[in-house]
Every structure is written in structure tokens, then in C-alpha cells.
Design a binder for these strands. Structure first.
Lengths: 187, 187
DNA sequence: AAACGGCGGAACGCAACCGTTACGTCGTAG
DNA sequence: CTACGACGTAACGGTTGCGTTCCGCCGTTT
């Protein structure tokens, strides 16, 4: 019964508004204005700002990234780094993600949603990546996927989403070498 | 002329309020309420929410961390990791920093203040840490301090401030080994 | 003793947004 | 052709916060 095009307009407006003003300052009225839609259309779909944002965000976040399997660990790793760094360089993502992460620190419901949406999926990627490498004999058997994920995503996230420094040409390459060495050392 | 104890009360209130509701939702009136102070006392000191927060934050952020020099790279590194992880585990810091980082993505003035307060200082620590290690022959001469800082702070920040996972007993130890190996490999 | 000035408190007009309601329009299903 | 229901618009009363102003209190300076 609810018109699909209106829903889409609202979803887009929420994403843009989130990127521009953040969750804390996001208002239903601004979303409605931006979407060219009445407030009623929004309240007909969700009862809350929180509920609305959570539904929209988890929808977006659950679009799964294909797990790489290029045949070698360094290949898998560079591909993963490329995918993640590209994603983190998109303006909307790099604004929304840190904002919601910060918000999650004070709102348990947001925290839970993000954990489910990101952590679970990310964990799967890490386990597959490391598992493949261990199976191929490229990493020692005791390699901890959790540590690995920290070592891989941490610096990228730090550089792109926090420090907001550009990634230079050979950075990912250097980084791949460094991470590989690091993981071999922890086994 | 301005009473010092009042100023202190306001500063504390701002920090607590920042941690609880974030910059976006921070209001002068709430700060005044929390500090047990009239709004006039605040406006007598700063003219804006932005100006107020920036002054208070950069004041706090500029308290310099002593640069470690334990005699060996792994010693320096574990000490640094300990200091940073302890800092990031404080409730107020782990709430305020990601929040302001996210805010910085949309407010150039906040971005500039944070860059000056954090990046500059952090860069100095990185350069000293790596410089010492290179001088001692523990790391290859070409080691890039910028990459090193990413490799060291990134995973810690990710784990503590973003993913909000606890640090287990031997994590920092493992991590020290991993980072050392990584940095040797990039030279 | 008197003047000064920072203080808290209270109120100002203004703006934004909340969540809800009433109304009139319009496309579609029956 | 009619009835339904989602739509936009507009308004509601209530809340919150802005930045400013005026007041009376009180400690310090002179």
C-alpha cells in the first residue's frame, strides 16, 4: 500500500542528512523536507527517528561484500584492502560510519545494530581470509583471525576515516607487505 | 576578574556533557545546568558553543604525552601501546574522541583544531620512536614514520574506540611482536 | 563607606522540532 | 463510478535551546 518511490526518496534523504548533520542533529522534519515528502509519510513507516535510522542503516550495511579468493594470501589481502579503502573513501560512508560509531558509544540499540551488521560480517571475512591462508600454508596454524582483522582494518580506518589522510600510490602495497609480515610473526 | 572556580566547573561540565550527548546535542543551557552556573557566566567567557568547546578541547589535548625512550624499540613500543590503550580506555576519552572526529568531518574548524592538537603531536611521537629505532639499527633506514603511526595507532583505536572490544591479557604483547615484524618488512 | 563587577536567576522574543490531527487531492482497485 | 487509502499541506500545543537583558546579591577594591 505504501508507495515505493516515496520510501526510496526517504531512505536517500536519511542517508544524505546523516552524512551532513549526523545522527544527533538529524530531524524528521529535515528528512521530510529533503525528500520532498510530508512528515505523515515518514510516521506512517516508522514511529521514531531511532527506528527509522536503524532500519535504513542495517538494510544498507547488510549488503554483503563478496569474500575474496584469489588463490594467494597476498592477492586476497590486496583485494580486500582495495575494496575496503574504496568503500571508506566514499564521502557518505566516511561521514556516516564514524558518526554512528560515536553514537553507538552512548546508545545501546545503535551499538547492537552496528555490531550485528558490521562485526558479524567482518568476522566472517576475517575467518575466511585467514582460514584460506592457513590451509595453503601461508600463515602459521595458530593465527588469530580477530587480531588479523584489527591489524588489517584498523590502520585503514584510522587513516581514511579518522586522520583523513589520502592514500598514496604505493601505500596499499607497502601495507600488504607489512600486514603479511605481522601475521606471520604472531603465529 | 572571572572567577577561576566557576571556569573550572564549566570546563568539567563541558567534558561530561560532550561524553554523554556528543557535540551535536551539547547545549549551553545543559552545560550551565550541570555546572551549577548561570548562562551569563558562560557567555561572559565564550561567545559560542563552538568557540567554547574548541578552547576547552585544545587545552586538554595539548597536555603532551612524554615520549618514551626505554633503550630498545620493543620497549618503547610496548610502553607507547600501554599509554595509548590506557588513555583510550578511559570512558570520557573513548566517547569524546570518536565523536569529535566524526564532527570534524563536517566542520572545518573542528577538523583544524583536532589536526593541530593531535596529528602534530602524534607525528612527533612517531618520528622520535622510529628515529630512535633506526639509529639503534633495529629498523631499516627507510622506515616511514607515517606508516608506522598508522600501523600502531590504527588497530588500537579500531579495537578500543570503534569496535569496543576489550583488550585481553596478551594482546598488547602479541601486537608488539606483530608491529615490529611489520615495520621491519616495509624498510 | 562606597563603587565596581562577576555572580545566579528569571524572563525575553525567536526559532526549530516534536508527534499528532484534520483536510482535500489523486491514483487505483473493485 | 465509487470507495479506499496514501499522499502533501497546514496547523496544533508543547518542549528545548538560542543569545540577550535586567535584576538583586555579595565579595573585593579603593
Amino acid at each position: 500500500m505504501l508507495r515505493g518511490d516515496i520510501t526510496v526518496a526517504i531512505r536517500n534523504a536519511v542517508m544524505k542528512e546523516l552524512a551532513e548533520v549526523g545522527y544527533g542533529r538529524l530531524s524528521i522534519e529535515a528528512v521530510a523536507r529533503r525528500a520532498g515528502v510530508g512528515k505523515t509519510a515518514i510516521y506512517r513507516r516508522w514511529s521514531n527517528k531511532l527506528e527509522m535510522v536503524m532500519e535504513i542503516i542495517s538494510d544498507v550495511a547488510e549488503r554483503k561484500v563478496p569474500l575474496p579468493d584469489t588463490g594467494s594470501f597476498s592477492g586476497d589481502l590486496s583485494l580486500l584492502l582495495m575494496i575496503v579503502s574504496t568503500a571508506l573513501q566514499h564521502r557518505v560512508a566516511s561521514q556516516i560510519i564514524p558518526d554512528l560509531m560515536a553514537e553507538a558509544a552512548r546508545n545501546p540499540q545503535i551499538a547492537e545494530t552496528l555490531q550485528r551488521a558490521l562485526r558479524t560480517h567482518q568476522q566472517a571475512v576475517g575467518e575466511k581470509l585467514i582460514g584460506q591462508a592457513v590451509a595453503r600454508g601461508e600463515l602459521p596454524a595458530g593465527t588469530d583471525p580477530e587480531v588479523a582483522v584489527d591489524l588489517i582494518l584498523g590502520p585503514l580506518y584510522w587513516r581514511l576515516a579518522v586522520a583523513r589522510q589520502p592514500i598514496e600510490e604505493d601505500y596499499l602495497e607497502k601495507f600488504t607487505v607489512a600486514v603479511t609480515a605481522a601475521l606471520r610473526a604472531t603465529g
